[in-house]
Every structure is written in C-alpha cells, then in structure tokens.
C-alpha cells in the first residue's frame, strides 16, 4: 500500500518540479485512485491481443454452453433470497431439493429489509424466504409477488441467552435483577427478534429498568456475537442460534421465552413475480415452495428449533 502511494507520489513529482509541493497533495489523489481502482501499468499491445484472444475463446464456449442448456429444458435454476437466520436449514433443504428434482437452486442470504428494496428495484429473485410475515404480504399487495402465494414455513422462537453458565435462570428472573451491564438485542425497528425482545421486557414490566442497559445490534447474528464475546452478559437471540444438532443448548445458559409474552414471529415465504418475466414459467420455483412444506423440510426446520403451524 505504502509503495503504491509512493509510486503515485513519485510519478506526480515527475510532473511537478516542486518536491515539497508533492508532499501532502499526492496522497489524496493516490488514496482515491487506489481505493477506486488500482493503478494500471501502461497498456502494452502484447497484453491487449492476448486478452482479446482469450475473450474470443470464452465467448465461443459460452455459446456452446447456451446451446447445451437449451437441450435440457427441464433443469431450471431458481434464484432464492433467504433471510440470514434461515441460512443453515435452507442450505440443507435446497441440497435435498436439487437431488430429488434435478433443478438448480442459487441461494442468496441477507436481511429481509434489504431483499425488499432489491426486489422492488427488479432483482431477479424468484422466491423470497423472509424472516417476517409483513414483507411477503407487502410485496403481494404491491404486485411484486404472486397474490395468495405466501405461507408460514417456520415460527421463530425467542430465547434469552448468556454465554456463561448459570446466569440466565429458567424463569427469566435475571431481567428483574441488576446483575448485568448490557442486554443485547437486534434493532427492534429492523429485526422481528429485536421487537419481540422489547415486547417481552414490557410484558414482564422490566422495560423501564432495563432500557438504559440495552445495546442494539444490526441483526440477530451480531446480537449473538455481542453475547458470545461476553461484551453483553445477556441477550435476546433466536433458539435456532443456540441449539446444536442434538437439539440441546450448545453452551451457556438459556431461557426459552414463553410465547405468550411476545407476538409470534412468523416467517413467511412467497413466490415473486420477477422470475416470471421473460416468458419463463414458475414451475420450478413453485416446486421449491412446495418442497418447503414437505415432511423432509419440516423435519429440518424443527431440528433447528423453529416451530411450525400444525
């Protein structure tokens, strides 16, 4: 990095006879140049021809690939936007779906709010596996998703977790004591689990006392980090984050918050309109949504600590 900057400054000083003038000034332009695009070596003709030759090969092989793909009309690739908290179960479900159906699934992970903005801007997702039930409904109402296609695939369970043993009791009494400096939760404005945490505190009548101790993370993954590193002694996270393959808590102490203390966290999936443009039929995407309700999928979903509608 330093060398790059020196390279720039030196080059600059060949333009300018003022050596002192080249000091602070060169940096800004080199910093900018360096972050946006690395300095290129002077174009050499040899390199140029080599590249275009390579490109020609790439183009022709792409043509072959396309011809080949036209032959197998049945194997579609489905682009799926998946809420980050559902990453692991979705990977397992998609792998099984690929095996049984022959379709390809391309999974993108992120926050439901970001996916909403991207879908509204025309992102080519065919299915949204959201972390809430509001976003899929809103997309349907706004015409970006197929009307009536949303359904609840999982019900999130909120837990109060500490990375330390014996901190969290099985009634959540710790919230009413003053034995902690920080309580971590996901931003309630953005994350359903954060909103459920606030609701729980209010239901317990502990909100006012705890409010000054709240630290907000961007999402539940970061909330988990705050608690796992011990910077916050306790925090509201998802049950799916703290249980292992065997269905037992991996480490620390946990209180599974009774569902009567907060509004159910319903996670919905929905079929999007975008994938349908260009004359492509939605059969593959519909098959994936159907598979999400299959016994296999529901076993995976349950093993990660999510509830489901009976």
């Amino acid at each position: 990095m330093n060398k790059l900057i020196k390279f720039f400054t030196r080059r600059r000083s060949t333009f300018s006879p003022l050596t002192r003038g080249g000091t602070g000034r060169g940096l800004l332009s080199s910093l900018n140049g360096e972050t946006s695009q690395p300095p290129r070596p002077p174009a050499s003709t040899k390199l140029g021809t080599g590249l275009s030759g390579g490109r020609r090969i790439a183009v022709s092989s792409a043509t072959f690939l396309m011809l080949g793909m036209a032959g197998i009309a049945q194997a579609d690739e489905i682009s799926v936007a998946v809420a980050a908290n559902f990453t692991e179960p979705m990977k397992k479900i998609a792998a099984e779906f690929e095996k049984t159906s022959g379709h390809k699934v391309a999974l993108s992970f992120g926050s439901t709010g970001k996916f909403y903005s991207q879908i509204k801007a025309g992102a080519p997702f065919e299915v949204l596996v959201a972390a809430d039930d509001e976003t899929p409904l809103k997309l349907e109402q706004e015409g970006a998703a197929v009307k009536g296609s949303h359904f609840t695939y999982a019900i999130g369970k909120l837990v109060l977790w500490s990375a330390k043993e014996a901190v969290v009791d099985d009634k959540g009494e710790v919230l009413k004591k003053s034995g902690f400096d920080h309580l971590a939760l996901a931003n309630p404005k953005l994350a359903p689990y954060g909103a459920a945490g606030i609701e729980t505190l209010k239901s317990l009548g502990a909100y006012d006392a705890v409010a000054p101790k709240i630290v907000q993370a961007e999402n539940i993954a970061q909330t988990y980090q705050f608690v796992a590193t011990g910077n916050a002694l306790i925090g509201f996270v998802a049950l799916s984050q703290v249980i292992g393959e065997d269905g037992k808590v991996k480490s620390g102490s946990v209180w599974i918050v009774p569902e009567k203390l907060y509004t159910q966290i319903r996670q919905d999936a929905v079929l999007l309109q975008n994938g349908a443009s260009g004359g492509k039929d939605k059969a593959a995407a519909q098959a994936l949504l159907k598979f999400l309700k299959s016994p296999f999928a529901s076993k995976v979903i349950a093993s990660y600590g999510y509830g489901q509608d009976k």
Partner: peptide
C-alpha cells in the same frame, strides 16, 4: 461503529448508523 457501538442514542449512535437505520426501516 456498527460492530462495537451497540447503537445507543446519544452515546454511540453516529450519523452513518442513523442513516443505515432509516434506510433499512424504509
């Protein structure tokens, strides 16, 4: 800031985080 701030009003909620929250909350 997002990683170590904790998004606390008046203490660690800086401008860039505030903008991010607004945009994420639409």
């Amino acid at each position: 800031v997002l990683m170590i701030g904790g998004n606390i009003p008046d203490r660690t909620r800086v401008l860039s985080v505030q903008i991010y929250d607004h945009v994420e909350a639409l």
